[in-house]
Design a protein around this nucleic acid. Structure first.
Lengths: 411, 411
DNA sequence: CCATCTTTGTTCATTTTTTGAACAATCCCT
DNA sequence: AGGGATTGTTCAAAAAATGAACAAAGATGG
């Protein structure tokens, strides 16, 4: 949108939204507007309930300024995470405050039509629970594993989800819910969620890493979600770690995902048991097929084999992230996804150490590394943020116009 | 620059610049302006000689439109490439047409002060040769190998240029030339050059790869040069290829640059000769230390050893690029730098093959791969583009104001 | 504690910007 | 050749933005 003549009210609104609480005089200075204009614009925004006055600021040697803030409740949106094993849905206001949440198991092999039904049912529950006025609901967004044709809203040959390729998920759901729907990659939405409402607020260049069955990354570059030319950016899970490594669902060998994703971690642990290593894992393996929690719990109890398995995964992820840092030089790296949230330092100690060894000092010197703050809600809340971003300009225009006409009729 | 209330004349100017030749009525439609306003704005731009009328377009069933175009000669700028072995300078108009060019050998060990003197001398020659009015010269930019603190204009601990760390090159040159000066990484400027004037015109997501002594990449993402948080983005030369590989100047082992840069290629060729392989290289190596041209020439004459050495480099670069494509999913990959321009398919055949094998099909399917069009001028012309980008808004404002006041005095 | 100086925010007449509408100039199409 | 369409200009009228005056509120300094 290089060429767009936007309403100045919208610029004022965005400034308040991003830099609020802020006073009218600060807005004038920041946007090179006269104080007279600012007064008028802000009046319209207040009238439309897009912003609210929120107390007074500190004096700078004169009258105390009246602070203006974005009205978090001027709209609502829904966000869903569509995983290989479950679906999570969230309804929140535009400030990222969750009003209702739903989650239930799901089997990716049931196919996209089944997912559709589930999501529709979930959204009805979410709406019922939150009691949000219909005209204030801006839309819904879904984050799913694997590459997505964002514009079209279609899953793109997902390596881990055969059978989903080409299914018009966005269009179907849009028809079913009769509201705007967006479809994106889960790591992309995770990044957007953390950037908008979580650990990465206001940090223009950040990478969000998501480790569970798959490994994916989402990039916020120059303050915007970066999807690449066809929406396939961030596929760090298919970066080459070891040419001679195990085969990956994508057809190559030794991809990061095939080496350090949850299934790979579990497989390596199982293998260690079979090889007869002395490990706490053995007795569990005798009772049921191992899962990631077994490995983490044993490691937490000091089991050396489990620790090594997790640390190795951390090291391998660290190698890939070192390269990534050399390429993108982000300011912040946010670590998320179930595996990392469960295992914590058991994975990330080795990860961070390896990253710093591999990356150029100039690129990693000032890099911050933090855990996801939104945890399991990162992707759904990223969906909310995506809806808000997409609909913002039109929504603000409409709300302003409506409030304006209502005022005209009153006076 | 999210919040900037720009003059509408400037928006019209930019539209003409980027999408010209374009008619007044098309501008009106595109920017949602009335035809009356467009007439006035264009009149001002014509008056200031920022745009020119360039013939008529085809009729769409009525009067034929008058086409408007950016006036390439409304300003000029200089761009320099500061390499390990030489300095190249270019003076061109804002359309990228080179008016004069200078090049001379340089030894990086002579230090930054020597480079400064050389560049000042070169710029005087360039100016003398091109005879450009002083008030139309917008500034100069330098692209140098290694990471650069762009904002500050200071080389940042360059692995291949010890002794340059922290030298205030930009400030020094700005004082010496008394015009705005910018300093950036050479691959960054190469990318910007190809994007603005070369093979990547108008392609919003592209990667420019530069292979010579070092290996670096420049990214155009969403139509803008991407530098990362501290200007260190694009350091693909220090991506890990082989943990057990030869040591790199950065301190790690097996970086791409240490495996497939020019020195590495030459070293591998030399080693093959020493090992007694039957190769055309042997007789050359007896006369002088081998250089890259020897390897390329022998390969072109069918020497198998030389071919293998170059192909191996191509394969290794292809691995790194496969990862890069998975991460950034660009639309276009431009291959440049001396080594690639000299060796051509001898390197790139293996490179392209490996890249497609390594990258996800979804990410590489529609990727285009082309050779640099600007060749040795990519980085200098990127400098011109950088100057123009940085100074554009202020320059257009000034030129408009001046033309306006001159007109006022006349009438 | 009071007078003075600052900063914030509003109001309204005035200035500047932008537009609608009428019109002239071309050109296509039948 | 003439009706219909598109382009581009002109000018009075409408809309948007501002400067200046002023009120409100607080800091500062004797």
């Amino acid at each position: 949108m290089v060429f767009s003549l936007v309403d100045k009210r919208y610029l004022v609104f965005n400034l308040i939204r991003q830099e609020g609480p802020i006073s009218r005089s600060a807005i004038s200075r920041r946007l090179h507007l006269s104080s007279a204009s600012t007064t008028v614009f802000v009046k319209d925004l207040l009238n439309a309930a897009l912003v609210v006055e929120s107390g007074q600021g500190i004096s700078r040697g004169g009258r105390r300024p009246i602070l203006l803030q974005f009205n978090d409740d001027c709209g609502y949106a829904m966000g869903f995470e569509l995983d290989v094993t479950r679906i999570v849905g969230v309804l929140s206001n535009l400030g990222g405050k969750v009003l209702s949440m739903q989650g239930q198991p799901f089997n990716v092999n049931d196919g996209p039509a089944s997912a559709l039904t589930t999501i529709v049912a979930m959204s009805q529950k979410l709406l019922k629970e939150a009691r949000v006025p219909n005209d204030k609901l801006l839309g819904a967004a879904i984050g799913m594993s694997g590459p997505v044709l964002y514009e079209e809203g279609i899953p793109l040959s997902p390596p881990i989800m055969p059978g989903w390729d080409g299914y018009p998920l966005r269009q179907q759901l849009q028809d079913a819910l009769s509201m705007p729907v967006y479809l994106d990659n889960d790591a992309n939405l995770g990044a957007l969620g953390e950037y908008t409402y979580g650990e990465g607020r206001g940090i223009a260049n950040l990478v969000y890493l998501k480790v569970n069955s798959g490994i994916g990354a989402g990039f916020i570059l120059r303050g915007q979600l970066f999807r690449g030319a066809w929406g396939v950016a961030g596929e760090i899970g298919h970066v080459s770690i070891d040419e001679d490594g195990p085969p990956c669902s994508c057809g190559n060998n030794g991809c990061l995902e095939a080496m350090a994703g949850e299934p790979a971690i579990v497989a390596r642990a199982t293998q260690a048991v079979r090889a007869g290593h002395p490990t706490l894992l053995a007795e569990r393996a005798a009772q049921h097929p191992l899962v990631i929690d077994d490995v983490v719990q044993c490691a937490q109890r000091g089991d050396e084999t489990s620790r090594q398995v997790l640390a190795l995964a951390g090291t391998q992820i660290g190698v890939a992230l070192g390269d990534l840092v050399n390429l993108l030089n982000p300011r912040l790296l946010i670590l998320g996804g179930e595996a990392i949230l469960k295992a914590g330092v058991l994975i990330t100690d080795a990860l961070v150490k390896t990253l710093h060894r591999k990356a150029l000092r100039a690129a990693s010197r000032n890099l911050e590394i933090r855990y996801s703050r939104l945890a399991g809600q990162a992707t759904p809340l990223g969906g909310v943020a995506l809806v808000w971003e997409n609909r913002r300009q039109a929504y603000v225009r409409d709300v302003l116009a409506e409030a304006n006409s209502a005022k005209g009729e009153d006076g």
